[in-house]
Each structure stands twice: as C-alpha cells, then as structure tokens.
Design a protein around this nucleic acid. Structure first.
Lengths: 120, 120
DNA sequence: GTAAGTAGTTACCCACAAGTAAGTACAAAC
DNA sequence: GTTTGTACTTACTTGTGGGTAACTACTTAC
C-alpha cells in the first residue's frame, strides 16, 4: 500500500489536523486546565507553570479559532474574561485518554517497566 | 483543580510524551507507511511525498531510538535495509484511530459539516 | 497619587525544525 | 568506464516556535 493513495493521504491529513490542535508546548496544558471548568486569564496563568501572558494569549486565540474553547467577556467593573471548552473541546476527552494510555505503555517500554501515572 | 497538582502534572507529561512521538512533519507518515508491512529506505522515500533523504534518515533514527521501529540490515550484495514496526509501534494503532476519529469530527465542525475520509 | 489587580500587547532575540543541494561509498549492469 | 541503484551523510540556509522584558489601559483600594 502506498502513501500516495488518496484515501490514505486523506487519513494522514485528518490525523495530522488532530495532532496540530494539541501540539506545541502549551495547548495541552490549557485544554487540560479547562476540563475542570471555565477559568479566567489570570487563573490559567497561575495554574499553568511558567507560561507567559504572551504565550497564553496567543494559544488561547488559536484554540478559539479552532473552536476548541470560547471566550466570554463580562462587563463587570474590573473587566472579567472567562474561557471554557466548547462541546468540540470536550469531545477531545476520549482522544486524550487514548494518548495518555499509550503514553503510559510507551513509558513502561522505554524506561524499563516502571509504572507511571497509574491513578486518575 | 490545579495544573500544579502532581497527579495532573504527571498525566500531562505522559500525554506530552505520546504527542512528541507523533509530532513533527514526518513521523506520522512514516509510521502509517509501515503499518502496511516492513519497507526499505528507498520504498519509504518513494511512498512519502516530498520527504528528503536527510529527513527520512533523521526521523527513522528518532523512531528507532523510541523503539517504535526496528532497522534490519541484510548482507545481500546491494546492501538492503528494512524498517518495520515493533510491537510498541503496532500498539499505537488504537491511539492513531482515536486521533483520526476526532480529526474527522473536528473537520466537520470547522469546515461546516463536510464529510471527509469516511471509509477505511 | 501610587500600588495592585483585571487582561492583555509589542518589540526584540534565539534555538531548533526543516528544506536544499551536493557528496559519499559500494556493487551490478551495460 | 559510465550509468544506475542501494542507503545514506554533510554543509549551509531559512522559517517559526517560543522566551524575555517592558508597556498599555482601565478600576479599585489605600
């Protein structure tokens, strides 16, 4: 079977799209932080270790463009902005679990049968 | 819930490990090409559109280090080298399927309900 | 009036991922 | 002896992901 076969090519493209959404240093931590409910900019910045406001703002924009999260502004007096997962964002759950599962398996093989991240 | 919580941190690290293995421009195409059986260097180069020998060699090495593929040299007279998935490499299947599934869902949401890559 | 808290933006820099082009080394075929 | 086919390697360049530091704008509290 050949990679240039069109069905195969399309599968590759679609899988690549999925990887793109979660790739990079910060997308995964942001999505994970929001699985526990909506959060404000400052909260996210405090929860995610070492992220700069520039990167947080940039990645939030990218995730919003991909319809993974929504941004809601409240006209309260200290202006408040809340980010939360869309249904599409929430639907990543199973995929992320599969990644975690395989990641555990991978660690065991690579690091020589040491159990990591066994509990939820 | 906080990202700095250690269990959560560990989950993040492990998931990130999984993403790292398939991230970059060429790892996914290489792994997919090898799911159809072992292949030689030249075959891979022909099957994967636009990959240069440098990138192919480099990514094959990385995948070998991660125990995703094995490299086998045959002492035949035009020296022949075969690459194939290890059991660990084959175990990526379910994860990749989940990525594809979500990717299809993602495309539908983003591109407005157009069905893509419906068949295997 | 100055500090602190809200939510960012802007400018500059660097390291690394990836691309390009050419070269290496060996043998078989013609 | 030159081309073809095997499987790469090396040197150089470019593009982008990400980091740092400082700045913006608005309000409340002291």
């Amino acid at each position: 079977m050949n990679q240039k076969d069109s069905v195969c090519q399309q599968k590759l493209m679609v899988t690549r799209d999925a990887v793109e959404v979660i790739q990079g240093k910060w997308r995964l931590p942001i999505v994970l932080a929001l699985t526990f409910g909506s959060k404000r900019f400052g909260e996210l910045q405090r929860d995610i270790a070492d992220i700069s406001p520039k990167m947080l703002s940039q990645e939030l924009k990218a995730l919003e463009e991909n319809k993974i999260i929504t941004r809601t502004m409240y006209d309260s007096m200290p202006v408040i902005v809340e980010y939360s997962l869309t249904p599409l964002g929430k639907s990543m759950n199973k995929m992320l679990e599969e990644l975690l599962k395989w990641g555990v398996h991978f660690r065991e093989e690579i690091l020589g049968k040491q159990a990591v991240a066994k509990r939820s």
